[in-house]
Amino acid sequence: MPFPRKLRILVAPLDWGLGHTTRCIPLIRALLRHDAEVIIAGNKVQEKVLSAEFPHCKFLFLEGYGVTYSTTGKGFFWKMMQQFPRIAASIKRENSWLKELLIREHIDGVISDNRFGLYTSKIPSVFITHQLRIKTGLGQLADDMAQRVNYRYINRFSQVWVPDFKETQNLAGVLSHPSSMPATNVAYVGPLTRMSHRPFVNEGGGILFIISGPEPQRSFFEQKIFAQLKDIKQQVTVIRGKPLQEELPLIADAVIYNHLPGNEMEAVMRSAALIVCRSGYSSVMDINALGLKSILIPTPGQTEQEYLADYLMQKEFAIKGSQSDFDLQDLLQKAADFSYSGFINQDDLLLRKVVAGFLDNCREQLIKEKN
C-alpha cells in the first residue's frame, strides 16, 4: 500500500564557508530520488547556492552562527573560544526555531550538517560531520575535552552520518575514525560530493584556483594568488567563492568567476590539469571524486585543515602548501614531481541505502504516531 503523502525532510547546513552547503547537494538529490519533499534552511548566501540547484524546493531563512575569524593563524583558537557563549546561544535559538517549525511545517525528519541545535526526540534527526575527533592544536588533553563536548551535542540526535569511507583507506583519517565513538548510531555514508563519478578524462590544461573559506583569510589567500599570477605561463582560472558578489576583478590572462553552480563547476574542474585550493573537507571530497591533482593550502589556524593536508600528503593524495609563505612557482615544481596516487574509487550507492533507511524510519515514526 503506497504511503499517503510525501515525507517532508528538513535539510540545514552550517554557515561556516560554503563547504557544508555544497556537500548537502548530493544528499538533497538522494532525498528527491526517493520522492521526499525537501525543505532547506539557511542564510542568504546558502539560499543563493542551493536555490540555484533546487529551485522547486522550499527555502526557509535560518540565522547562522555569525562566527568571525582571527586575522592571524595563531589567534584562531582563542578567537573561537571568545565566541563560544554566542555560539551556544545560537544553538539554543535554532533548537527553539525547530520546535516551532515542527508544528508549522509538519516536518517528518531532520538532517543537520553540523548545526548542533537541530535535534529533536519527536522525529528522526541526523547530524552530519566528518569531525568526530576534533584537533585543537593544543595537545591530546584539549582534544579529549573537545571530543566530549562534541559528543554531548551529537548524542542528542538519532543518528550521525560520517561522509567518509569506513575502511582503513579513507579521506579524513583520525578525524572520522576516532578510537572512541559517540553513543548514538553512527553510519558511514561515503564522501558527499556534488561531482559525478564518471571516469576522469582531462579535457585541457592550466591551473584552477578555488578560493573559499571565512573572511578575512579568504581575501588574504586571494591577494597572495593574484600577486603571483603574472609569473604563471599556463592558462589560469579563478573561482572566488563569493556567490552574492557581481563585480569581478580584472586580471590579465585569467578567467575569473565569483561562483559557479555544480554542473559548471565540475566542467571547469575537469578541464584543469591542477587545482590549488583550501584543504577544506568538501574540496577534498570533490577532488577525490574527479581524481584531480591538487595543491592544498590550509586556512591559517584551522587545525582540521592542517591535519587533513598533512594526512593527505602522506597518502600521496595532494601537495600541502602554506599561506604564510605561499610560493606558487615552488609548489608547481613540487606538484610536477609528485606521484598523486592516493585517490579512492567511490559511488553513491551507500548514500542511497542510508537515505532509504532514514526515510523508512520517518515513515515508521509517522505511522506509530497515527496509531
Score class of each variant (00 low, 15 high):
177 H>S: 12
170 N>L: 07
178 P>W: 04
179 S>E: 12
181 M>A: 12
234 Q>H: 09
247 E>S: 14
177 H>Q: 12
171 L>C: 03
220 F>K: 02
172 A>T: 04
226 F>Q: 13
259 H>R: 15
195 M>R: 09
220 F>H: 06
195 M>L: 06
173 G>F: 03
246 E>N: 14
228 Q>T: 08
169 Q>W: 07
171 L>T: 00
243 P>S: 00
210 I>K: 08
223 Q>K: 15
177 H>A: 12
227 A>P: 07
191 P>T: 09
263 N>Q: 13
159 Q>Y: 05
198 R>I: 12
239 I>N: 04
260 L>D: 10
211 I>Y: 03
162 V>N: 00
260 L>A: 09
175 L>Y: 00
180 S>V: 08
173 G>P: 09
218 R>N: 09
232 I>Y: 02
159 Q>V: 04
208 L>W: 00
227 A>Q: 08
261 P>G: 11
184 T>V: 13
206 G>H: 02
198 R>L: 15
207 I>C: 02
200 F>N: 12
171 L>I: 04
169 Q>R: 13
223 Q>R: 14
177 H>M: 10
196 S>Q: 05
180 S>T: 09
223 Q>S: 11
251 I>L: 11
209 F>W: 01
228 Q>W: 07
214 P>L: 09
233 K>Y: 08
184 T>A: 13
234 Q>L: 01
266 E>F: 05
259 H>T: 15
181 M>Y: 12
245 Q>A: 07
207 I>F: 03
169 Q>S: 11
199 P>E: 01
187 A>G: 07
216 P>V: 02
202 N>T: 10
171 L>V: 02
